[in-house]
Computed example of a mutant assay.
Amino acid sequence: MRVVCRVSETGSVSKAAAALGVSQPSLTAQLHRIEEAIGGPLFDRGSYGVTPTPLGRHVLRRARAMLVDMDDLLGSSRRYTDGPRTLRLGSLRTVMFGTWMARMEDLMPDREFTTQVDVSSATLTELLAADVLDVVMIGRCDDAHAPPCPPGVREQTMVHPEPYAVALPVGHRLAGRTDISLTDLAEDIWICPPAGKEDGDLASLRDACERLGFTPQFRYYNLDSIEIEQLIGAGRGISLCAPTMRDIPSSVILPLVGHHISWRRVLRFRPESASQEDIDLIHKAFTDTYRTTIAENALHRPWWDSHPDTHPTVIDP
């Protein structure tokens, strides 16, 4: 059921395989077995990905409802178990993930972890609300567009504000600048974030641009991070990015100034599943990793020292 739902959400077997941490051939074979058991094809395959068949739509409706019940059963059963249990951690996809996990394990040597990485803060928040995860690290835009915090879930801010930067092709007309504003980019094509549930960042960008008198042009949907980087490098468009973004071949990253778009990096957690001590250690591991990553990236960005307004505020636990 989770396989079928993830294929539908991503619109692609390859993207679903990456999200589930399995190979594409393995997931394709599994999907064929599922379709044989169900009795017919669940998806139509085309050059632009997959779309559910009428049978697939029926299965998806039932699968989503059944998964909610299953997750509730698993979550409610845990209160009858004794002793410390594995902490289920979710995270946005980030270049910092491996280093953050290593620091966390050093700070919490007696704790076991399972991890799940996704491109969508909204999806991670839903998994937290369904008691599939105990703690998630997400990035969210301003409150008007951010995925809401579910009832009973707490939020702890680690970085705010985190200003955006813009990734431009190296041949872009503005690539030689030391900074850039949204009004400079009124005629450009924007590449959408990686495929996944809408987190509100595109809506936030659209609102900011429309307040300045233009509507941004979006193109290239349902891409993964590598495909986005390739399109930027090929001169096909531009994209918002965090200051922790690694260097992209054939592109430059410039600070976005004179605007009101920023992110907040937060931990959301279920207090009955993770103690405040656990959360503070996870928080410390993240902010230590964040500072190190920023310092390493600053060496490759000559504008960093002269643009203190682009420096994010890092909050210790």
Rank of each mutant, 00 (worst) to 15 (best):
V119E: 08
H32E: 07
A102P: 01
E277K: 05
V59T: 01
I38F: 01
E162M: 15
C241S: 04
R85H: 12
G56M: 01
S14R: 04
A129M: 06
A17E: 00
L256S: 02
A242M: 09
P249N: 09
Q217H: 08
S14H: 14
A186C: 11
L67C: 10
E105L: 03
L87T: 04
E112S: 12
D224F: 06
W190K: 01
R211D: 12
E126N: 10
L174A: 00
G90Q: 00
D69E: 10
L254R: 05
A17L: 07
I34D: 00
R111A: 11
R6H: 09
L27H: 02
Y80S: 05
P151E: 14
L60D: 02
L127G: 11
E36F: 11
L27D: 00
I238E: 03
D247A: 14
P317N: 08
W303S: 02
T81P: 09
R140H: 12
A37L: 10
N297M: 13
R236M: 15
L55I: 04
R61C: 11
E296A: 11
M245S: 07
L267P: 07
G235S: 04
L31C: 14
E227H: 13
Q276Y: 12
F97G: 04
R270N: 06
V257L: 11
P54I: 12
N297H: 14
L127E: 07
